[in-house]
């Protein structure tokens, strides 16, 4: 793909978001949620797509960020930016502390430990109703104006612009990180861990770093959801959230930041469009999609588009 085409497609992607703001005013709350989930899938991509570490419990960090930011605001500190940072810090801290546990055994053990930790957190949030509201959800989250200027309005305008801005900034940071020597080292670890060790890379330290980074990203996504909806329910920690995010990532294409975001958009739009139907129906087709993607291989939509473009360009 030529540089000009690449730039044009990226401009189209971000321009599309901006256009949606004007074209679809009644859908702004949904669009804000899509941007948030796109950020969550982006965080998963850093870990799974780039470093090759598969987790079944990424919702743990999304939920931690959501509860951290939500509880902070509920307790009387409603300033949004510091709330985001607080959500990121809590998630990153738990990520840093659990990374050695998760990375201790082989990848099968890692799968189960990530799952177990997420389940523990879900149960903990469920049982600690005095702090989290339990199954009723966290009520009474009151947000202040962003920078003391922009109030969260009923139409979701502020929520959308705020979420999209955070997504864009964190996308830029992620792009920098994946193109840095650190990012290349992550791809090396995914490609061949033994060789990376023989090149003198402290593989474990790199994985701890990316696990923590990914946790912080997921924490910010969760915090955004808590702030823009002013509510936190238990499903932020649900296993379904981890599984759905993996699906979105694979759907869009792993190891590419745009793939992660596109997967989230397609999934969320389809979910919204099909939500009129029964929930079982949705779950059934998600399951079919997962099976098909697993069997057919994981290039995702971006991989497919790339192949089409290559064929088209080759003519």
């Amino acid at each position: 793909m030529s540089a000009a085409l690449r730039f044009a497609l990226q401009a189209l992607f971000w321009g599309g978001w901006a256009g949606a703001y004007f074209a679809l005013p009644e859908y702004l709350p949904l669009l804000a949620q899509i941007a948030i989930i796109a950020l969550f899938v982006l965080s998963l991509d850093l870990l799974v797509g780039y470093a090759g570490f598969v987790t079944l419990g990424h919702a743990a960090f999304f939920g931690l960020g959501a509860y951290a930011a939500g509880i902070l605001a509920q307790q009387g500190w409603g300033e949004p930016i510091s709330g985001l940072l607080f959500g990121a810090a809590v998630a990153a801290l738990v990520g840093l502390l659990t990374a050695p546990l998760v990375l201790r055994g082989g990848d099968l053990t890692g799968l189960m430990v990530t799952l177990g930790i997420a389940m523990m957190l879900f149960e903990a949030a469920n049982r600690m109703a005095w702090l989290t509201g339990g199954a009723d959800g966290l009520q009474g989250v009151e947000m202040w104006e962003i920078f003391g200027v922009w109030r969260f309005d009923l139409f979701g305008r502020t929520a959308f612009v705020y979420s999209l801005t955070v997504l864009f900034l964190l996308y830029l940071l992620a792009r920098l990180i994946v193109s840095s020597p650190f990012g290349l080292a992550l791809r090396g670890i995914k490609g061949n861990r033994r060789r990376m060790e023989a090149l003198g890379t402290p593989v474990r330290a790199r994985l701890v770093a990316v696990y923590t980074l990914s946790a912080a990203y997921a924490g910010i996504a969760g915090a955004l959801l808590a702030q823009t909806t002013q509510f936190v329910s238990l499903d932020v920690l649900d296993f379904h959230r981890s599984a759905d995010a993996l699906l979105m990532l694979v759907l869009g294409g792993m190891g590419s930041l745009y793939g992660a975001m596109l997967g989230a958009i397609v999934f969320m739009v389809a979910h919204h469009a099909l939500s009129e139907l029964t929930p079982q129906f949705w779950q059934f087709w998600i399951g079919i999609a997962l099976i098909a993607l697993a069997i057919a291989g994981r290039g995702g939509m971006l991989g497919l588009a790339g192949r089409l473009l290559a064929r088209w360009g080759g003519r």
Binding site: S179, S180, P181, F182, G183, L184, A185, G200, T201
Partner: peptide, 14 residues
């Protein structure tokens, strides 16, 4: 990059 001790460097593209 590994030999030069740069593999932890994330703030500058390769």
């Amino acid at each position: 990059a590994e030999r030069e001790g740069l593999s932890a460097r994330w703030w500058k593209p390769l």
